[in-house]
């Protein structure tokens, strides 16, 4: 198995770490902005979908054929929401990766000695924040404790 990332960072000269941190910071901001933009987009589509659903609920009491046209619109918006949520998950994973790297680099420069336990403690914070920021937390909620262990053995190199 390859050496844990914090070991590799610890062996790098400060100048290289500065450059690496700067790069990850730039990428982090880029993905964070893209993710926020996508979240806003989803929120606006969900609002639109909800309005159409209200409209459809009223229409259904008057005439079934009338509601069919509204349901067609709802169908298209729902497809767009599914696409955007999938893209959001991809942007979120990239944001997480760069944020994680920035933290590790900063701590390495500050002389923090990393071990699997310390890496493990970084993970819940990151993921809690990601879940909190995200509109769709999907099924990441239930995976934190297991993820901690797996990060421990995979990134930590145990």
């Amino acid at each position: 198995m390859s050496r844990p990332i914090y070991d590799r960072l610890a062996k790098m000269p400060k100048k290289k770490l500065d450059k690496l941190e700067y790069d990850h910071q730039q990428h982090l901001v880029r993905f964070m902005n893209a993710k926020d933009g996508k979240s806003d987009e989803i929120q606006s589509m969900e609002k639109k979908y909800s309005k159409l659903k209200d409209k459809a609920t009223k229409e259904i009491t008057i005439s079934i054929p009338r509601v069919l046209g509204t349901a067609m619109e709802m169908r298209q918006i729902k497809a767009e929401i599914l696409i955007s949520r999938s893209v959001l998950a991809l942007l979120r994973s990239n944001q997480f990766y760069h944020r994680f790297m920035v933290m590790l680099i900063q701590d390495t420069k500050a002389g923090v000695q990393y071990d699997p336990e310390k890496v493990k403690n970084l993970i819940p914070l990151e993921f809690s924040e990601l879940i909190g920021e995200s509109i769709v937390s999907t099924n990441m909620d239930g995976i934190l404790s297991d993820l901690k262990n797996e990060i421990d053995s995979n990134i930590g190199g145990q």
């Binding site: 999938s86 998950a89 990239n94 990766y97 760069h98 990060i151």
Partner: peptide, 21 residues
């Protein structure tokens, strides 16, 4: 986008992370 990484790391760690479609 500059800095894009495939989510292989997360995917390796958990098989059930939801990447939607």
């Amino acid at each position: 986008m500059e800095g894009f990484e495939f989510p292989d790391l997360l995917g390796d760690l958990r098989k059930d992370i939801d990447f939607g479609l």
